[in-house]
């Protein structure tokens, strides 16, 4: 990923939910924060106003490792978004972070058809038009 390049792909840009503002704010600095329930001492995903296990609202944002493994993968050959079709086939990965939560992303770089379940990956960032960054993944050393 080029540093803070102008977005070259016109994606559907995510709306910022009320519970996830701290997450998106940190992406300006390419920092991955996860919400943790301090009562359960576990991370939750996606961000919510309350913990889905105990309904406590004691949510604390903690920096994440940004590392994980591919939990599931598909390569889209006929994208619905015409802007993404220009990319050619691309891999959509569901990644289980070392912290135990699963985030969706695209694989950046490499052959999408070589992406496999279990592959070690690390977070990389794609600039959005408003200064936030989108979580993406790239292959990492295991």
């Amino acid at each position: 990923m080029t540093e803070d390049a102008t977005p070259t792909v016109k994606r559907f840009e995510p709306p910022i939910g009320t519970a996830s503002a701290p997450f998106w704010e940190a992406t300006r600095d390419k920092r991955l924060l996860l919400p943790w329930c301090t009562a359960c001492e576990r991370p939750l995903w996606y961000p919510r106003e309350v913990c889905p296990r105990c309904l406590d609202s004691a949510i604390e944002w903690r920096e994440a490792s940004g590392r994980g493994r591919v939990y599931a993968v598909t390569v889209d050959y006929k994208p619905q978004n015409p802007a993404l079709a220009a990319l050619g086939p691309y891999a959509v990965v569901l990644v289980e972070l070392d912290e135990g939560v699963r985030l969706l992303g695209n694989m950046v770089g490499g052959d999408p058809e070589e992406v496999a379940v279990g592959m070690a990956v690390a977070v990389t960032w794609e600039p959005l038009s408003d200064g936030h960054h989108l979580v993406q993944f790239e292959r990492a050393e295991p």
Binding site: F12, Y71, T74, D76, P79, Q80, V92, L104, G105, N106
Partner: peptide
């Protein structure tokens, strides 16, 4: 939350989610 956490990634609907499940089952 689908708009915030899934829609940006171009997962084709509805077959993308089933494809993810198939990949997991295969693995």
């Amino acid at each position: 939350p689908r708009a915030e956490w899934e829609a940006p990634y171009g997962l084709r609907m509805p077959m993308g989610p089933y494809a993810l499940a198939a990949s997991r089952h295969m693995a």
